[in-house]
Each structure stands twice: as C-alpha cells, then as structure tokens.
Amino acid sequence: MSEMRTQLVETATALLADGTATIEAFAEAGFGQLLTPEAEGGFGGDWGDAAEVLRLVGFHQPRLDVAALIVGDGQLDCALATTALVGGALQRALELAIDHANTRVQFGKPLGKQQAVQQSLALMAEEVAAVAVAAQAAAKARDAGDAAFEIGCAKLRANRAAGIGGAIAHQVHGAIGFTQDYPLHHYTAKLVEWRSAYGNDAYWAEQVGTFALSLGGAGLWTEITRRSDAL
C-alpha cells in the first residue's frame, strides 16, 4: 500500500471506528478533495485509494454517503464507487455470518461445523473475493482514463455478488439476522439498494454485451488484453 493510501485508510478507519461518523466529519477531514490533484490543493489520491476508502465505508457504516463526497455524481464513477461499497458491505456481512456460525450451537455443535453451512459460506467468500478484485481492477483502469468497459464488468459482477452473498448471509443467520436489533440488515439493506443503483444487471449486461459483440469473437480477447497491458 502506498503511503498516501495508508494515511487515508487510517483516517477513514478512525472516523468510522464507533459507527457514529458523520458526512460533515468526512468533509472536514478533506475526503471531498481525495481525487483532486495536489497542485489544485487536493490530496492527489488515485481511484484505488478512493475504492479502498469506500470499501471501508461499506464495511463500517454503509448508510453514510461518502461516495457522493469523493466521486461526485457521474454515472460511471458512481457505479465504480458503488462496486467498492458493495465489496465492503459484503465483507462485513460475511464476517457477521462467520461469527454467528462459529458461536451459534444447534444439534450439539456450532453451525460452522456443518458441511452444508461451510459450503454456503465458502460460496459467499468467493463472491466477496470477486467483488474486491473487480473493484480494485476497475479503479486501476479508471486511473488510466477510459474505464467504461471495466466499470461495467465490475458493477455487473458486484450486482450478482450482492444478490448471492446477501441471501447466504441471511440464510446462515436464520431468524436471528432478521431483527432490527441485529446489525446484519445495515449491510444487506444497502446491498439491496446498490444492486439497482447506477445500472442494474440488465443495464450493464446489455452495455457490456453490445461492446463485446461489436468487437467480434477474437476481437474481444484482443481488446481485454490490450486494455490491461496498457495500464
């Protein structure tokens, strides 16, 4: 991690530590200028930094609208920001589910000892991993310029992961995860919203599909590799 990112992560983590961070506190700490170049008085951070900060927001306090503060209101940039938020909220829902599975005893043993539960949580972890990688890869492409393709792929993948992962988190928690008191809904409710925000499954599937078809069968691979080699 770069020095810049370490510093941003520490600041964001400190702000988010007790779950009562405000958007004003983020603004005061300068997060509105995260992506503004240093020459213009900003932090000079990159999109990888922004994605990491938003992942933390998704993980700790997903209802806080830090994304608008950092990335503004462009649809593509908001789609990228949402992908990062999904990654964080899914990670938190997974950790809650693992804790629950390791402590809740049924049939004389923790749920997490049941193979069926283990297999479900493994699937969820795979979805979490896919979103984390997709968000960072799309952020890297965004730093280099045109990233419409990468952001489309990443948001499309995040939409699917949010659906699969949210469902598994609730299933593993049983009724306990279904109350106002238990924190799971803070994350899964936002996951539900974010699946529709800045392009749902059908929207991005058509965008990405139209682009892929315009390239032709062999051309798709040529384009995917050309784009990543240029980073």
Binding site: C153, L156, R157, A205, E206, V208, G209, T210, A212, L213
Partner: peptide, 8 residues
C-alpha cells in the same frame, strides 16, 4: 445480455 454477463 448473455454475452455481457459472460464477458463480465
């Protein structure tokens, strides 16, 4: 859409 999902 099928191609888009596979590509993503």
């Amino acid at each position: 859409a099928l191609v888009g999902r596979a590509t993503a």
